[in-house]
Every structure is written in C-alpha cells, then in structure tokens.
Computed example of a mutant assay.
Amino acid sequence: MTFRQHMRQQAASALTEFPTAPDSGLYTVTFRIDSVDQDSRFPYLALGYNTEAEVARLLAEPSPPEPWEARWNYAYFPPSGLEGVRVIGHDEQADPRGAELHGQEARAAGLWFEEDEPEHIRDERTERLDAQFQQLCVDLARQFHTEGDLIRALGRPLPVILYDMFDPDVMFALTRAANPPALVADFLSADAENADDTG
C-alpha cells in the first residue's frame, strides 16, 4: 500500500465517525493540514466537521463574530472542526502506519533531510514536502466528491474546507481546487484576491 492509498482509505473511513442524524446540522467537512512539531517531514491531516448549532451558539454571544467568520473561519471552529475526529499522516502516535509509509516514500523520493544538512537543502525539501502534502489533501477532498464518499456517509454533498495552520493564505486556493464551485461559493465570497480578479 502506498501512502496515498493509506490516506485515501483512512480519510473515507473517518467520514463514518461523523454524526449522520438529520438534525445533526453538519454543514461542512474540515481538513486541517498540519505537521508534528512544525516539521514538514511529519505532515498530517486532521479531518473534522462543523455544525449549524455551533454557528448559532457563536452568533448568540454578547459580542458575536461576523456571520462569515462564525461559519467559515477556523479560528472559531469547535474541537470537531479543529482537532477533528481522526488524524492521519506522518504522526507516529495517531497513525503509525501512515508515518511508516510517508517516511519510506519521502526517503525514496530524495525529500527526506537531516538536521545537519545545509540550510538550502532543508529549505528546498521542506517546500517540496509541503506542496506535495497540500496537493494530496486537495486530491482526497476531490475524491470525496467524485467517488461519492460524502453522499454515502452523510447523505448529501458538503463543502470540504482546507486550511493549513502554517500557511493561512492558501486556504481559499486549496478549498477552491478541492470542491465543485457551487458548494464553496459562500466560503469563497470572502476571498479578497478572487474578488479583485473578478470585480
């Protein structure tokens, strides 16, 4: 099994842990892209969700956030959207098999590095590892849509919001690439860069 196949299997399985009752109010799937100890050699994905009840709770507070922020900004996500229901990837505690596969493949591809290697080598490989994992997460979200995972597990298509804890500026680009446009129109309405391009 490849690391990509492992991630695909585990991501689809994680959806089965989400609440499926009609009144659950689940409106989005969340992909938090992160890494152990902020080290790109150990990337992982925390899969989670957010609910309408959580948004309503935030908006009912004495000093509520703006509606878009309450619904889509990960800074306001509850544990189900931030910590997720499952962590998969190169995290030896949460996903030892994923850690093994990713380590093997990173070494075979010449992307692994040691701390004593020259800085320019570490920087170049860090950039490639980050880009590779981001693309893998986009691909996983696309498969949720194209292969019917969301409908099978949750009964309907939902937007998948991707956010990278160490590169917040790519949130809109990653999410746009991962979803059918209609599903993420509300989320993308706050993308100032896109608005400038189309306005």
Rank of each mutant, 00 (worst) to 15 (best):
L154V: 09
L47F: 04
N50R: 01
L174F: 08
V85C: 05
A108V: 04
F113Q: 07
A190H: 15
E54I: 02
P168K: 09
R142H: 03
E66P: 04
M171D: 11
A75E: 08
E193F: 07
G84W: 07
T2N: 15
Q135T: 12
A21P: 06
D116H: 11
R152L: 10
I121D: 12
G110E: 11
F31C: 08
E119Y: 14
Y44L: 12
L82I: 04
P64T: 03
M165S: 12
E69R: 10
N179A: 03
V87L: 11
D123G: 02
G84L: 14
P118W: 09
A46V: 11
H102K: 04
I33W: 01
T51K: 05
V55F: 07
R128C: 05
P19S: 02
I151T: 15
A12M: 02
G25D: 12
N73A: 14
S35N: 13
S40N: 10
T16I: 00
T198D: 10
P79R: 14
L140Y: 01
P168N: 08
P181L: 06
V138E: 01
F187E: 11
E114D: 14
E114K: 14
M1N: 05
P62M: 05
A185G: 03
V87Q: 08
D197S: 13
A11C: 06
F3M: 04
N50Q: 15
A12W: 01
L174M: 15
D116Y: 08
A131K: 13
I121R: 14
E105W: 10
P159M: 10
D191I: 11
F166V: 13
G81H: 01
M7V: 13
N50C: 09
E193R: 14
N50G: 02
N194D: 13
S40T: 14
D95V: 09
L45G: 05
P78T: 12
E117W: 14
E193P: 01
V87W: 07
T198P: 00
H90T: 03
S189R: 12
E92Q: 12
A109R: 12
A46M: 13
D39I: 04
Q135P: 03
V138R: 03
A60H: 01
A153L: 12
P96H: 03
P22W: 02
F113P: 03
A99C: 05
V160A: 12
T126E: 15
P157T: 07
L154G: 05
A141D: 08
G84V: 14
R57F: 00
V160D: 04
L59F: 03
D34E: 05
H120P: 05
Q93C: 05
I121N: 04
L154I: 08
P22Q: 02
